[in-house]
């Protein structure tokens, strides 16, 4: 597309203005995290000096490191769990012909219409009965099965030519080895998308960890932030913002690295 200089400048202007607007709160929090109490009260935007005092404070006030580790363990577990459970289901939907396939697929899709919050009360009781309060399995297992993930992978598996399956049958490859050696490697991009999505949403999960963790043993960073905020609110905003920055860095990095991939993968899963 050829574009005139005037419209180019105009578009750049809009891009810069609006993206600065969108990113401003994050930048602001970042600046605050280096400021001392008086500086914050004066309402400055740039800190006078870069001091990491707030960061050392936040790590000493809160077992933030162990929260980070918990969040990491929980997010990676959910990510891997979703990849395994969803890819197995998607494989069955694409490469097997069986009675009731459409019905079961419909059941899967119907779970997308059941808001998770509408079922949380019995789920909390279930976790209590299993004695899974304050455990990793309590935080992760309910999220392993994901209709959206199954759907996304199924869409990708459907693009694999059936001749590949047939050629593998002639070569004598078992069903599972075809799944493992051919289907999964070919679908790497979709698996990465789903993995990133799973990690991101789990890392950011709020309500479920709030319900399931009653002590610090497996508490995640998001609940840590709530804790921090309610403890520190009146006084030390710099410390709170340092906590915020620590918590969002992993996911922001992940997003920056995988933005392109995520955008392609998600819109594909959503539409085709």
């Amino acid at each position: 597309m050829k574009m005139g200089l005037a419209s180019k400048i105009w578009i750049y202007f809009l891009l810069i203005a609006t993206s600065a607007f969108v990113f401003f709160p994050v930048l602001y929090a970042f600046m605050i995290s280096f400021m001392t109490g008086p500086e914050i009260i004066q309402g400055k935007f740039f800190p006078e000096s870069i001091s990491f005092e707030n960061y050392s404070k936040v790590f000493s006030r809160l077992p933030l490191l162990s929260y980070l580790l918990n969040s990491f363990i929980v997010s990676v577990s959910v990510m891997l769990g979703q990849l395994v459970v969803c890819s197995l289901a998607a494989y069955a939907f694409v490469f097997f012909k069986f009675k009731g396939r459409d019905f079961i697929f419909f059941l899967f899709i119907s779970t997308m219409m059941i808001p998770w919050e509408a079922t949380m009360i019995p789920n909390v009781f279930t976790i209590r009965k299993l004695d899974w309060f304050n455990t990793y399995q309590g935080l992760t297992l309910p999220f392993f099965a994901l209709a959206f993930g199954t759907f996304l992978l199924r869409q990708h598996f459907l693009t694999i030519p059936k001749e590949l399956h047939e050629a593998s049958q002639i070569a004598g490859l078992s069903r599972f080895r075809f799944f493992w050696r051919v289907v999964l490697p070919i679908s790497k991009t979709s698996l990465v998308t789903l993995g990133a999505y799973g990690f991101l949403t789990t890392w950011n999960m709020y309500l479920w960890p709030l319900l399931i963790t009653t002590n610090q043993s497996v508490r995640t960073v998001q609940i840590g932030l709530k804790q921090l905020q309610s403890q520190e609110i009146a006084t030390e905003w710099g410390v709170v913002m340092a906590g915020v920055i620590v918590v969002i860095i992993p996911t922001l990095l992940l997003l920056f690295l995988g933005q392109k991939q995520l955008q392609k993968g998600l819109s594909q899963g959503a539409l085709k």
Binding site: L164, A167, V182, P185
Partner: peptide
Amino acid sequence: FQNYALYPH
């Protein structure tokens, strides 16, 4: 096969 069925990976 007509489309060769080569493993792309």
